Amino acid sequence: MKKIVSTQGLTYGEFREKSLSIAISERINNRLEHSFFQNYGEAVHTSFNLSYNVIAGEITQIVLDYTIDNPTSIRLEWFREHCDNFFALNHFIVDALDQKDPHVYYFATDMFEMASLIHALDIMSVSLESIMCAIDAKLTSKDAIYTPSGSTIIQIPDVPRY
């Protein structure tokens, strides 16, 4: 079994790395908006928020949250359906109860859902490795832990000096 850990030892739930925001805006949002227009014949502009919860270095949930311009219940439902298809994920949710900021979001709380979201973003050339990565759950404090690419060490092994 694997678990997803924070690669930067972060303990709060929101990460605003400028390069990640630019990558999502340029590599995903533009394509998402264009394909929505192709499918529904309506222009839509999106803004997003990526957040997550960390407990003891382990990621327990990831949320990808989108708002669109001129949200109506039908446009939000169309956008939700389009996000499901575009990201090849199920279970995007429409939250239209918040009248100030109705939005569509993907709420991942188990390993499968989180890995599915990470994979969907990775396919579109947006790597979350600088924030989080999957490791074997059986690793201990005595093990060195690297990101999957091997480019970053997450944990230095707790080895006594000799």
Rank of each mutant, 00 (worst) to 15 (best):
F107I: 01
Q61H: 09
H119V: 04
T67D: 05
D101R: 14
R16A: 11
G41Y: 08
H82R: 04
A23S: 11
L50Y: 06
P71N: 07
T60G: 07
I74Y: 10
P102T: 07
L20C: 04
A43F: 09
L10F: 14
I93S: 09
E113N: 06
F92A: 03
E33C: 07
M114I: 10
N39D: 14
S149W: 06
Y146H: 10
N29H: 02
V5W: 01
C83M: 08
I123C: 05
D101L: 13
N30D: 10
A115K: 11
T72M: 05
L117M: 07
T60A: 05
A115Y: 00
L20R: 04
A43C: 06
L10P: 00
H119D: 15
N30V: 13
G150M: 02
W78Y: 11
M124H: 08
N29V: 08
E113M: 12
F112P: 00
S47H: 10
F48R: 03
D65I: 02
Q8H: 13
R161I: 14
P160S: 08
L97M: 11
T7C: 10
G41Q: 06
F92Y: 11
N70K: 14
N49F: 09
S47N: 11
N39I: 12
E81L: 12
C83L: 13
S151T: 12
Y12I: 14
D122M: 10
A108Y: 06
I145D: 00
P157W: 05
K3L: 11
I156S: 09
T152V: 11
S47V: 13
T152M: 12
A137R: 06
D122N: 13
T67S: 12
V63N: 12
D122Y: 12
T152D: 04
R27E: 10
I154Q: 03
I22S: 01
S6G: 07
D98R: 11
L121T: 02
A88F: 04
V94Y: 06
R80E: 08
Q155I: 08
Y66M: 01
H91Q: 13
T11W: 00
E33L: 01
H103S: 14
K100V: 13
S127G: 05
E77Q: 15
T109I: 15
I22W: 01
E77P: 00
H91L: 08
N85W: 03
T67G: 10
A144C: 04
F112G: 00
S130G: 12
D110N: 15
T152R: 09
E42F: 03
K138H: 12
Y106F: 15
T67A: 10
P148W: 03
V54T: 08
I4C: 02
L64A: 01
L128R: 04
I131P: 00
D122S: 13
F107S: 06
T7Q: 05
C83G: 05
D122W: 08
H45T: 14
F86K: 06
